[in-house]
Design a protein around this nucleic acid. Structure first.
Length: 441
DNA sequence: TCTGGGGTCCTAGGACCC
DNA sequence: TCTGGGGTCCTAGGACCC
């Protein structure tokens, strides 16, 4: 039996945890660069605001309805996510952290300890709320796809109190009938259009199709698995995460610039900074990379015709996690791509072909002692930046100064809340109020 | 003025190997 | 008439996820 725990309107809920007066009011959180709406409170959804809507297009509407607007605060959300996941891991032996706001739990054998699984899920829900102020819903079912579906129904139907356990055939059938086919996990826009054209409009319709049909119409083995899972046959297993982090197979750092850039040194600075960040992620999971892609993009919403994006991939002779070396390669790649007199809006660095660090094939010509030295240098760099804050020590070309107001590519973030839980400079202030100060447990 | 940033898996086809 | 039969690895592209 699987459970899917999903935080409600996660980013908005994180902001509300530190600003309780936002409860019951419409709230939205914006993407990087204050670009789009990526998290909406129930009240904001009720106003008709859509996921991914460009901020500038709905600014007036937001103002009219006094919607509270926040820039995204990933330091806060990451930390709050860690707290939720840590608690879940303490209650269940196997947890797969599926995204920043979702986790699958393996509930096999848990009845023995907790009796009814629905009651256990209610306890989890209340405890997460009490410990972190984050509201969650929980779906429980024999397959991951049905657990996702149960979660969706639990979110939608208020009388379920945030938990739905598909423990019988009638319940499964009922839940399948509640969910539009486009809301099934694995059905995106392409497939949804295709399915509607064939009269398949609910999860129940889809579950009634044959495996062979699914294989033919929904992308081969993926579709076949999807339909079997809806029918209650487990095809997907839990991939437990170690200490809440998953070793990635690719690592990227990409950003839209705050303003268009056409000067080479500016874009190089951005690319070097992105390489630095990606290399930090790489070392955190003890990997080395042997494929490095750099891309730069023009404004894709303008009047210019495509192509908008130019990219190149380098195969590195020896896998590495050395920031300096990676910046050198990134610079080579960027030089290859560069177009003069062109305005770029976005750039990115992507690492593929990751290997375990230390396992890489060594170069015939690089002395081992020197490699060890570089490894130590990188470890010291990471330690300093962890201790004193991101960007404390870096490479000049990346121009990442601590607290820098102005790297050229910096994006807008006009409404960011403090990093309440991860930065000493931004800790939550509690106003002392004389003798009437309530005692906190 | 203004439109995010990460990821995953699968398939088909080509190059190359014996 | 008749033109092998297996593999592997890599890449590009397409679908999906949050």
């Amino acid at each position: 039996m699987f459970a899917l725990v999903d935080c409600n309107n996660f980013y908005v809920s994180c902001e509300r945890a530190f600003q309780p007066h936002l409860e019951g009011k419409p709230v939205v959180v914006l993407s990087n660069n204050d670009g789009c709406l990526i998290s909406r409170s129930a009240e904001a959804k009720a106003l008709g605001l859509r996921m991914g809507e460009p901020y500038f297009q709905v600014k007036d509407q937001l103002q009219r309805h006094q919607v509270r607007v926040f820039s995204s605060n990933y330091a806060l959300y990451g930390d709050m996510s860690g707290r939720v996941m840590h608690y879940l891991s303490s209650r269940v032996p196997d947890v797969e952290v599926y995204s920043i706001d979702e986790a699958f739990l393996d509930l096999r054998g848990m009845e023995r300890y907790h009796g009814n699984l629905a009651a256990f899920a209610q306890t989890l829900r209340q405890q997460v709320r009490k410990r972190t102020h984050i509201p969650v819903c929980i779906g429980i079912a024999p397959t991951k796809t049905l657990a996702k579906l149960a979660n969706r129904v639990a979110k939608k139907v208020p009388t379920l109190n945030g938990v739905l356990y598909l423990d019988s055939e009638p319940r499964r059938q009922w839940a399948l009938a509640q969910v539009p086919v486009e809301d099934v996990w694995g059905i995106g826009q392409q497939y949804a259009t295709k399915l509607h054209a064939q009269g398949i409009t609910t999860a129940a319709h889809l579950a009634a199709m044959s495996e062979g049909w699914a294989r033919k119409h929904l992308g081969g083995v993926v579709g076949a698995r999807l339909v079997r899972e809806l029918q209650g046959v487990p095809c997907l297993t839990l991939a437990p995460s170690e200490d809440g982090t998953l070793a990635r197979q690719s690592i990227a750092c990409t950003r839209t610039f705050g303003k268009p850039l056409s000067a080479y040194p500016d874009v190089l600075g951005a690319v070097a900074a992105f390489t630095t960040r990606a290399a930090e992620k790489l070392r955190r999971q003890h990997s080395a990379v042997h494929l490095l892609t750099v891309f730069i993009s023009k404004n894709r919403f303008g009047t210019e015709p495509p192509p908008y994006t130019f990219s190149t991939t380098l195969q590195l002779p020896v896998a590495t996690s050395d920031t300096a070396e990676l910046i050198r390669y990134a610079r080579t790649a960027l030089k290859r791509l560069w177009l003069p007199n062109t305005q770029f809006k976005k750039a990115g660095v992507i690492f593929d072909g990751l290997e375990a660090a230390g396992q890489q094939q060594l170069s015939l010509f690089e002395p081992t002692a020197k490699i060890k030295q570089r490894d130590r240098l990188m470890a010291d760099l990471d330690q300093l930046n962890t201790r004193y804050g991101t960007g404390t020590v870096g490479f000049a070309v990346a121009q990442v100064y601590k607290g820098a107001a102005g790297v050229e590519w910096a994006g807008r973030q006009q409404q960011r809340t403090p990093a309440y839980t991860t930065n000493f400079e931004e800790l939550w202030h509690i106003q002392m109020d004389g003798p009437r100060l309530p005692r906190r447990p």
